[in-house]
């Protein structure tokens, strides 16, 4: 189809470990093709040149944890035609959303000599709690192939088509034996979205930790009832649910229910 102007891509960082944006640089083989297909206009971790907005595609990494970031995300949204969150932090609040169940002031006093200099929020929240998001890319970290697919889709004006079904689908396609059924291990796979790349943890004989957040139609209450009947206690289940996606609604609500 007809050639069009190269789309401008920007990458923004909020509270995060940088791992997701690094996934983009990790696309060694495809990086040159990517640079041909789009213009990387703003990506501090990769390029010192910073082109001004507006941008066609904005990738946002990290969650909102400070008043400053809460304001900055509004500016970012205004500069981006399409805004895509990349990773668990931006999509659900990330591991740092564990603070949502803790005493924020106590943390500050414990960690910092002069907590008065710290200006942070009591919660870590998803980007979509603050602005409209066009697409959410899951994972801790994101899967680089999925990231490329999403960027490529937006660059071509298409809707990304990534799986939203359970990790189990990938396990079965790989021929991986279900650890929950064959070993009685409490695995989050049945309630977690596929995409990590062939059900990574179960393929290595480990339970799924839910890095990709809830699948499209999760039923964590039924799953935890089952695990409880197999003598997995509630605190263990709560720890499993309150991980990289503790603040994703389906996991958050079930964790809260179990911890009563």
């Amino acid at each position: 189809m007809a050639a069009v102007r190269k789309k401008k891509l920007a990458v923004f960082k909020f509270a995060s470990c940088d791992g997701c944006q690094l996934s983009l640089l990790d696309c060694e083989d495809e990086l040159l093709q990517l640079a041909e297909a789009i213009e990387i206009a703003y990506f501090l971790e990769a390029r010192s040149q910073q082109l001004p907005g507006p941008y066609d595609i904005g990738l946002v990494e990290g969650s909102i944890t400070t008043p400053h970031d809460r304001a900055r995300i509004q500016e970012v949204r205004q500069k981006c035609h399409r805004l895509v969150t990349i990773g668990a932090c931006a999509t659900s609040g990330g591991i740092q959303a564990l603070r949502n169940w803790a005493d924020h002031d106590e943390f500050l006093n414990y960690v910092y000599a002069k907590p008065g200099f710290i200006d942070s929020l009591a919660t870590s929240t998803a980007i979509s709690d603050h602005v409209r998001v066009d697409y959410e890319l899951r994972g801790c970290p994101v899967n680089k192939h999925q990231l490329l697919q999403v960027v490529s889709a937006f660059a071509r004006g298409l809707k990304p088509q990534l799986p939203t079904y359970s990790v189990c689908v990938d396990c079965k396609r790989e021929g991986t034996v279900c650890v929950a059924v064959s070993q009685g291990v409490a695995c989050l796979g049945p309630v977690t979205q596929a995409g990590c790349g062939g059900a990574l943890c179960p393929t290595h004989h480990r339970e799924c930790f839910g890095c990709f957040g809830p699948q499209e139609m999760p039923n964590p209450a039924s799953l935890s009832a089952r695990y409880k009947s197999q003598e997995v206690d509630s605190p263990r289940l709560v720890r499993l649910l309150r991980n990289f996606n503790s603040n994703a609604p389906a996991f958050r609500d079930e964790g809260n229910r179990l911890s009563g």
């Binding site: 189809m1 007809a2 071509r156 004006g157 298409l158 809707k159 088509q161």
Partner: peptide, 15 residues
């Protein structure tokens, strides 16, 4: 309405 049909909408004669 979808990805395929939106791409088709960009088609030109001869494609």
């Amino acid at each position: 309405v979808g990805n395929v049909t939106n791409s088709l909408a960009q088609a030109q004669i001869g494609d």
